[in-house]
Nucleic acid binder design. Sequence first.
DNA 1: CTTTATTTTTAGATTAATCTAATTTTAATT
DNA 2: AATTAAAATTAGATTAATCTAAAAATAAAG
Lengths: 220, 220
Amino acid sequence: MELTTAEENYLKAIYHLSEEGKKSVSTNDIAASIQTKPASVSDMLRKLGEKEVIQYRKYYGLQITELGKRLALQTIRKHRLWEVFLVDKLHFAWDEVHEVAEQLEHIQSTLLIERLDAYLNYPKFDPHGDPIPDEYGDVRSRPRIALNEMNIDQGGQIVAVKDSSAAFLRYLDKVGAYIGARIKVLDKVEFDGSVEILVDQKKTLFMSKDVASNILVLQS
Amino acid sequence: MELTTAEENYLKAIYHLSEEGKKSVSTNDIAASIQTKPASVSDMLRKLGEKEVIQYRKYYGLQITELGKRLALQTIRKHRLWEVFLVDKLHFAWDEVHEVAEQLEHIQSTLLIERLDAYLNYPKFDPHGDPIPDEYGDVRSRPRIALNEMNIDQGGQIVAVKDSSAAFLRYLDKVGAYIGARIKVLDKVEFDGSVEILVDQKKTLFMSKDVASNILVLQS
DNA sequence: CTTTATTTTTAGATTAATCTAATTTTAATT
DNA sequence: AATTAAAATTAGATTAATCTAAAAATAAAG
């Protein structure tokens, strides 16, 4: 079963959106995440359904299949290995790699990926701290820690929330502490447990212990 | 001016055919060299003409332009740099690289190629002994002679092959006639053009005219 | 210098991926 | 529950690359 480049990109996007805990993945979400129009997504969903990498019922929703997950993880594995190569070997900055890795991930050659993996010394995480699936799609994900339990100067990436109420999510959205944001703990106030963090190397943000304890961080 | 992957492949084929000394490049030649149908070639020639990478008059013939040459050399440069990477760093056998390099050459990123070039230590020749153009398309090529055209007792170094099919490369590998091998012509059989050579001052080797004519030697 | 053969090009389809505009379905709001 | 709003899908076009079959142009042979 082989997928075209476009199909791989859609499937990867669907996988990522599925993993982000959200209830179900909408056509609009996908369109937004890969900069295309909903009409194009509808069409592609039909095709991906036929190829059985997703289960799809129109107007109703979709669910990624085991096959789909495996293929998506293969693409993600390639993407992240190339990112390691670009940063470790070719000295790219971590914010310069994405676009190029986006192209490299579609090169088809299992031998190439095996050799690249070995050459890079079987890395387990990419330069952004995201785990690299092994050739079977298994991910050794790192334990996550509540933001309020991190120490000063520790950094990481927001990967999940404990409280997923609409109010909380709206709040996080407003202050820019979205899932995926890279953060660093700048300060902790002992007596009330509140914290000050740096978000995406730009914005500083204060939050109460109550809020911080509901944010899960993947440490890097 | 950017070319699609297909356009790059056509242009590369045209460049190579043009360089092979032949009078002019025919539609059929191109079709044969990239395994496609003449009808498709006609269509593409029109497009390449519009993009001014070739001068094209239908039924009459074509001529690659300076712009076309520059772009073709850029693609060839990328292809050969990737081949060096695959062989030197990922330990591919020299007959395994072509297919993968064929994909990698289309990755678009000047930064990537600059960095790769530096990482490989600015190689001047690829694993098949073919020269790698610099970023301006300049090629430092060495004068070479086909092995079957050398005289008895002449010596030299194998620097390239004309036929780079996997089958041929595997054969050469097996008999020990690798790129870089130092050879000396011991005997030539007049009536069938076959030759006997000494490889690395150790091993004698018989080869047909057909094989010898596909091996290029830098005379010493 | 005609006729035949070869080469090249056009005409018309097909596949993949995309778009805009229109329609249909589902969700939200009085 | 009826109406409005939002989301999703279909219809119909477009672009790129390809093909087969037919037509046109050039080259080769008698």
